[in-house]
Structures are given as C-alpha cells and as structure tokens.
C-alpha cells in the first residue's frame, strides 16, 4: 500500500540530488553543451546553408547530446566517491535510482534545448507547425536519449573519464548517420541502412515533422520507435545493473 508513494518520493529525491550534484560537473558541460555547439559551428557557420531548414536537426542534436550526457556520469562518479552503497541503503531500489538518473538527464536535456529554441526564435524564423508533435519530440527525445546515457554506464565502471570516452564513442558516430548533417532524403546505400538503426534519426524526423511539416516517416512511426527504444534501453540498463549488483558492488 505504501510502495507507490515511497517509490515516487525516491525518484524525486534521487532526481533532485542528481540535478544539484551533476549538472555543473565539467564532463557534463563539456560533452553535453560545448561539443554540440562546436559541431554546429563547424558544420553550419560560414557554409551558406539554410539555417532555418537545418534547425530541427540541430535542435535534435542538442537535445540528444545534453540529455545523454548526465546519465553516464552519475553512477561511476558515485561508485568512485563511495556514495553509491549509501544511496542503495536508503529506502530506494536500483530501479528507482535508474529512473532518477534518467529523469535528471531528461530534465537537463529539456532545459538546455528549450533555452536554445527560445533564444533562436529571437534571431531566425523557426516556426512550430505542430505544437503537439513538438512537445512529444521533446519528451520522447529526452527520455530516449537519457535512457541511452544510463544504459551506456550500465556494464559497470567506477572511472568517470573512461565512461565519458566510451559514451562519446557511441554518441558521436550516431550524429553522422542520423540525418543531421545530410538529410535522410539525400542518403543512400549503407548510410541509409545505418540511419534506420539509429534512434536519433527518428528524433530528427519528428522535429522536422513538428517544425517544418515534412518528414521521411509518419510521426506515429517516429513516436513508436522512440518510445520503444526508451523501453528497451531502460530494460537493458535494469538487467545489466542488476547483474552487476549480483556480482558485488
């Protein structure tokens, strides 16, 4: 009878703790905020590209990077500082900790990406054709990206720099095969096949549908894929972290 309020309270407290402790850590600021901005400058500035046309893809990239940069840091940092065991001994379970980590990443992603969108509207006409899809893109995009960040750390490590390197090894290739720099309609062969396997492709496509009204897939497909991968990432993170705990700390 008491389990649901206790679990919810646990998620909220763990999320708050993560927000307070990890949002300002240098790896989060570097790999979550500065890197995607540098990528934007490197690819779009000075190349006479239509920034408005590429804006949905850029927003998807920002959201993906910010939301997936918090999760990989938390558990290794806690294990290294020996606070993880104490956290587990509080009235929380491993599932609550995972959900708190995902929520912290998602809130970070939403906050930063919303700021970028709001500021961008001051300088360029970035219209939103479908507000409902736009909100869905934010919600599903941040949850799936944040869940991916938590999954990346799940094989187990207490060394934050190593985990961040591993996380970038996965995240960087994804931005090149997901229709951000080359639109999906211009991709072919192996590139297109790889794009179908990247969850980021569907987020870029959903932002395109929400902001410009054009998309390669139906928004229903985009939403379904993002919800599906979120569930798979969470389940995989749960299984891996449970296995780690069975083996010890």
């Amino acid at each position: 009878m008491m389990v649901i309020p206790l679990a919810l309270r646990g998620i909220i407290v763990v999320t708050g703790k993560n927000m307070r402790l990890y949002y300002t850590k240098p790896p989060v600021l570097m790999f979550g905020l500065l890197f995607p901005l540098f990528m934007f400058f490197a690819f779009f500035v000075g190349r006479h590209l239509d920034l408005v046309a590429f804006f949905p893809a850029f927003l998807a990239m920002m959201l993906f990077f910010t939301a997936s940069s918090v999760g990989p840091l938390i558990t290794p940092w806690e294990k290294r500082d020996k606070t993880y065991e104490r956290l587990l001994s509080y009235p929380v379970t491993q599932d609550i900790i995972i959900l708190g980590d995902v929520a912290a990443g998602a809130i970070f992603g939403i906050g930063i990406s919303l700021c970028i969108w709001v500021v961008s509207t001051l300088f360029m006409p970035v219209a939103v054709m479908s507000p409902g899809l736009f909100v869905l893109a934010f919600v599903l995009g941040t949850i799936s990206s944040s869940a991916m960040g938590v999954l990346i750390v799940s094989p187990g490590s207490d060394n934050p720099p190593n985990v961040m390197i591993f996380s970038n090894l996965i995240r960087f290739p994804l931005i090149f095969i997901s229709g951000i720099f080359v639109p999906l309609s211009q991709m072919q062969g192996l590139g297109l096949t790889l794009a179908y396997w990247s969850p980021l492709t569907y987020l870029v496509d959903l932002f395109n549908a929400a902001m410009s009204g054009t998309s390669a897939f139906s928004p229903l497909v985009d939403c379904g894929v993002l919800a599906g991968v979120s569930a798979v990432f969470l389940l995989a993170a749960r299984i891996l972290q449970k296995r780690n705990l069975m083996k010890g700390m």
Partner: peptide, 23 residues
Amino acid sequence: RHPLDAKMQMGVIPENSTVYGDL
C-alpha cells in the same frame, strides 16, 4: 521482497562509505 518498507526502519553506515563531498 519489500525493500522500501524494510529500509524505512533502518539507518545504515556502510563500510568506507562517505557522504557527498560537494554538499
């Protein structure tokens, strides 16, 4: 089986476990 209810009754000081240094 009921970790949350059981843990609510407990206080734990784990071995070598520290509190949050940044707080």
